[in-house]
């Protein structure tokens, strides 16, 4: 399967979960989605979920007009600063934003993973993040005789989760190293699309040392090879973040014209079409 085959399967309006820039961010997948969005079958109205925060890939998709709604705990380009297309879209009202807080997103995914309707989470009381989420409930802890309010969070199952891993094997298992929080995302999502640096022979789950960092093919719908596919984000010990490129992006994307110019140079140009 190719990268374009993967992105072709993303329906309009899908709830698409993406990891942050420091945890197997699918940069090549996001660029391929943007390229598709420029064509006749452009993807529209995506609802993005930051797990638990959002970065370059999300800002790129927002800038390209693919996004209707974003649920996340923060949007940041790290040392390169604020995410300019996100800020512009919020200011002109072209996206709906559901503010969350990191452990709430993890907890909602864990509820989906367990197949239960909700899970409780400490904290959040007194935060306006809670007051703006009518579907997040507060109840008295039923196991305590003292006053003890606790927040209940509904299960959240993304339509699609996409991330970039290091390895896949012939069976469709993928290896995410120490980034095992991706397993919870994969367990919770209805469909999981993964890009990888390379495919290896054999079965990753037969290797006792690799098995703990491996997500079983049970959860993976499709895998495509995309060398350097996390770029400009880092990928485990494979390669560091491209800080200069993220600075270039942050600077270019400050204006709509600069963003279009960035797309021309780094997303749409044939030389970068991988």
């Amino acid at each position: 399967m190719t990268l374009d085959d993967l992105t072709a399967q993303v329906p309009d309006g899908a709830l698409l979960a993406l990891p942050p820039d420091n945890s197997l961010s699918p940069g090549a997948f996001a660029r391929a989605l943007v390229r598709r969005s420029m064509g006749v079958r452009g993807v529209r109205g995506l609802r993005l979920l930051g797990v638990p925060v959002s970065g370059y890939a999300t800002d790129l998709l927002i800038g390209a007009g693919c996004v209707a709604q974003l649920q996340t705990s923060a949007v940041t380009l790290g040392e390169a600063g604020t995410a300019p297309r996100f800020c512009a879209a919020l200011a002109d009202g072209s996206i709906e934003l559901l503010d969350a807080t990191c452990p709430a997103i993890h907890t909602m995914l864990q509820a989906a993973e367990k197949g239960v309707p909700f899970l409780p989470l400490r904290g959040l009381l007194g935060s306006d993040v809670l007051t703006h989420r009518p579907h997040w409930r507060v109840m008295q802890n039923p196991f305590s005789n003292a006053a003890d309010l606790i927040v209940l969070l509904p299960a959240l199952a993304p339509d699609i989760a996409a991330f970039h891993a290091v390895l896949a094997d012939a069976h469709g298992n993928v290896w995410v190293g120490r980034r095992r929080e991706l397993a919870t995302l994969a367990h919770a999502a209805r469909r999981v699309f993964v890009t990888v640096e390379r495919v290896v022979p054999g079965n990753l789950l037969d290797d006792e040392r690799l098995a703990p960092g491996t997500i079983s093919a049970t959860y993976i719908e499709a895998v495509a090879v995309a060398a350097h596919g996390a770029w400009p984000s880092a990928l485990l010990d494979e390669y560091p973040a491209d800080a200069a490129h993220l600075r270039e992006y942050a600077s270019a994307a400050r204006t709509a014209d600069g963003f279009r110019d960035y797309l021309e140079r780094h997303v749409l140009a044939p030389a970068h079409a991988a």
Partner: peptide, 20 residues
């Protein structure tokens, strides 16, 4: 809400960590 004048990055884990 949610930062129509100047938007900051977002709450990260603060709504949880500050209390925990």
């Amino acid at each position: 809400w949610p930062g129509r004048t100047v938007r900051f990055p977002g709450s990260f884990g603060s709504a949880f960590m500050y209390l925990m």
